[in-house]
């Protein structure tokens, strides 16, 4: 035994590995306690009926929480709202971010000024943004005044179920696009100038250069932007919470999955069910990410 340890110790690789793990210990401990353990605990608890208030007790219910999800109408409404939201917001904000980045990457006057102005929404707290937008969306607010000035129809943006989620969409696109714009901007500056020169020599026009040089180069960044955008939109909570005062109304139109989880966990104190919903959300996100990875990889082969 001793001999074995001595022999192992003499090996450079073992010593290196040990030192490596030793250095990583603080991180491993912290991540283990605050990340891995809670995740495992959450997975386990989603099979229980949990009562936390008063006398704490756990009751094994098997798959009952998950069966309940299937029959819960509000889950499907929330899922539909969230998917609707993601389908509109993710492409729009990605295209907008790319367009803004291209614009700011060109040789226009006052480039730095524009960069600052465009980036400001991304550094403002979303709670503050929501409050500002609630003023803009007010029935007598800025947006409706502008619409009626242009002789366009006005809406009760905060109270009408038909447009409430669209209001949040507009706000979110406006505030997230700049962040992705900066990422695109950084990637654009990485593209070697020589490629464009070669394309010019081959007789490519601007649009062709964009299509065949810029876009393929930006593919990994686009993947990142789309995945992050997807995760961000699926986790929509604060905006719809502030909009609807936590109810997800009017008529469930701003109910998102995370808001529903919050309602079950903290309003109804139904932790087991809320955790089951969380697992489902995680699954949905994982599947969505895998699908996107497959899509992007296939394209990069040709």
């Amino acid at each position: 035994m001793n001999l074995l340890i001595q022999r192992l110790w003499r090996k450079q690789a073992t010593r290196d590995a040990l030192a490596g793990y030793l250095f990583m210990t603080p991180t491993l401990v912290v991540a283990g306690i605050f990340l891995v353990l809670p995740v495992i605990y959450a997975v386990v608890l989603s099979f229980y009926k949990v009562r936390l208030l008063g006398d704490v007790n756990y009751q094994w219910v098997g798959l009952k929480n998950f069966v309940r999800i299937v029959n819960d109408e509000r889950v499907w409404i929330a899922l539909k709202n969230t998917v609707d939201y993601a389908v509109i917001v993710v492409p729009t904000q990605t295209i907008l971010a790319l367009a803004l980045a291209l614009l700011l990457n060109s040789q226009i006057r006052g480039k730095n000024g524009f960069r600052v102005v465009f980036f400001l929404p991304a550094v403002t707290s979303s709670a503050v943004l929501t409050l500002i937008f609630m003023w803009i969306y007010n029935s007598n607010g800025l947006l409706n005044s502008m619409l009626s000035f242009l002789k366009l129809p006005t809406y009760n943006w905060l109270g009408d179920p038909a447009v409430a989620l669209k209001g949040i969409m507009i706000m979110n696109i406006w505030s997230t696009a700049p962040l992705f714009m900066v990422i695109y901007l950084a990637a654009l500056q990485e593209i070697p100038e020589s490629l464009y020169e070669a394309a010019t020599l081959d007789g490519a026009n601007r649009w062709e250069k964009f299509l065949h040089v810029t876009l393929p180069f930006l593919k990994p960044v686009t993947f990142f932007v789309v995945v992050m955008g997807m995760i961000g939109t699926f986790q929509l909570f604060d905006q719809s919470y502030i909009f609807s005062a936590g109810s997800g109304g009017p008529n469930n139109s701003t109910l998102t999955i995370v808001l529903l989880i919050y309602q079950y966990a903290f309003k109804n104190l139904d932790m087991g069910y809320a955790l089951a919903l969380t697992l489902v959300l995680a699954m949905v996100l994982m599947v969505a990410t895998l699908v996107q990875r497959r899509l992007f990889r296939e394209e990069s082969l040709d």
């Binding site: 179920p161 109810s247 009017p250 008529n251 109804n268």
Partner: peptide, 19 residues
Amino acid sequence: LPTIRTNFNNQFVSALLGE
């Protein structure tokens, strides 16, 4: 009552708006 209230408020508004 919290559960009942959430569901009532949600749908009553919808009826009020004529949906």
